[in-house]
Design a protein around this nucleic acid. Structure first.
Lengths: 216, 216
DNA sequence: GTTTCAATAGGGCATATGCCCTATTTTAGA
DNA sequence: TCTAAAATAGGGCATATGCCCTATTGAAAC
């Protein structure tokens, strides 16, 4: 099965170069090329025989983000891979919001590009590693503004960590004692020591602080 | 420069298999292996000569998500790649939140794995295409569906959430009562109701469950 | 070889917590 | 408007917890 591909880029030279790159692969046929988002939609309306689109971001008249959104609106199953030199958070985020199925930098090699196209058509998504990292960070950021403050890296003994681990499950001292095969008195002693080290004075605070500091 | 690697998996056979896979590459040395998150932290505390960690998700004692969060807290520069058979949204989301730098399925081939490790150490991120797609989808709809599983979407009243928030700071009932300008008896009544709704019977469990379900 | 320290075990006591009970007022929905 | 739910307030009781005390053992440090 051939991958019917469209290339959207305002730089004629780059389109030419891409066509040459892709001509190495017999399973890829170029359906059409376009120089901006509007032209892209025109051609798409005339000839819908397209499986995948390689989309530039910076284009006149209608940029890659808008074009992607429009294409996805018309043909939700048509895969769109962004192919650009821009790797800033905002472009990445907007492209993904617009429905892009992949995001590659233009430095991507021929075989890597081909592989990305195949993977995308198989229902996956491909990103340049540096883009993937930014995508992950975007996914983290809305909910995780915390970056680690770690006052002075408190050092707990192995045994104390074990006790703390059990403590964090919410079971009472007596149950912890049974699990660790020690007396409840010893458990309480360990917990006292833990509290002193962590500078807290309750279960909840100890658990919270331990989690923040990566102790458990 | 050698990539000093740690492998965390509760399946001894899989660790063995991974070690063999990686032995093909002279630039990779295995620093240590561990069978669960706790063991991992123990060994990490003893021998910090690690650049990258391959982390399973399902493990006893302390799963891969918790372990990743703990490792990242302790050593933020240590790269963690999740290597698992689970590809559900919740695991992916939680792993990323925990700070994972990559997410691969166990079916990943030797050269692909090696490439992912190198890319990750070079400051990128690598995901199996199917995982990348799900990550993109999570990024598209960050708030809509279900971040956590939410057994029956427990509904707490406004007041109960207020009480729960105070409870999570670790202060005693009496202090909560003062902060909310109500009697300690009322605080205790609210907490009883909260426990019933959340199906728990202690402070620590209530706080943990509330956090998991995004109630606080 | 002695000292220091972590892990163990024990006890006492005041307060906090979890769970049972009733009851009034306020709010919101049918 | 009437009613159901939520918020409020109160009490009792067994257990858990936080914090004080001492003491033995084994292992590491000096």
């Amino acid at each position: 099965m051939s991958i019917r591909t469209a290339i959207i880029d305002d730089n004629h030279f780059l389109i030419k170069s891409l066509q040459e790159k892709l001509s190495l692969f017999p399973d890829i046929t170029i359906s059409f090329t376009a120089n901006d988002g509007l032209q892209c939609m025109d051609k798409l309306n005339q000839d819908p025989q397209v499986d995948l689109m390689l989309m530039d971001l910076e284009m006149p008249v209608k940029n890659g983000i808008e074009a992607t959104a429009a294409v996805k609106q018309r043909c939700p199953d048509l895969k769109v891979i962004i192919l650009t030199v821009f790797d800033d958070d905002e472009n990445i985020f907007n492209a993904i919001q617009a429905g892009a199925d992949g995001y590659l930098l233009k430095e991507t090699g021929a075989h890597e590009l081909h592989n990305a196209m195949v993977q995308t058509l198989n229902g996956g998504a491909i990103m340049t590693p540096s883009i993937a990292l930014k995508a992950l960070n975007l996914l983290r950021s809305p909910l995780a503004p915390t970056v680690a403050h770690m006052e002075e890296s408190v050092q707990l003994s192995n045994r104390e960590v074990e006790v703390l681990e059990q403590l964090s499950t919410g079971i009472p001292y007596t149950a912890i004692a049974e699990k660790l095969f020690i007396s409840p008195f010893t458990v309480r002693k360990h917990i006292e020591n833990i509290y002193k080290k962590l500078q807290v004075n309750s279960k909840v605070m100890a658990i919270e602080k331990a989690k923040r500091n990566g102790l458990i």
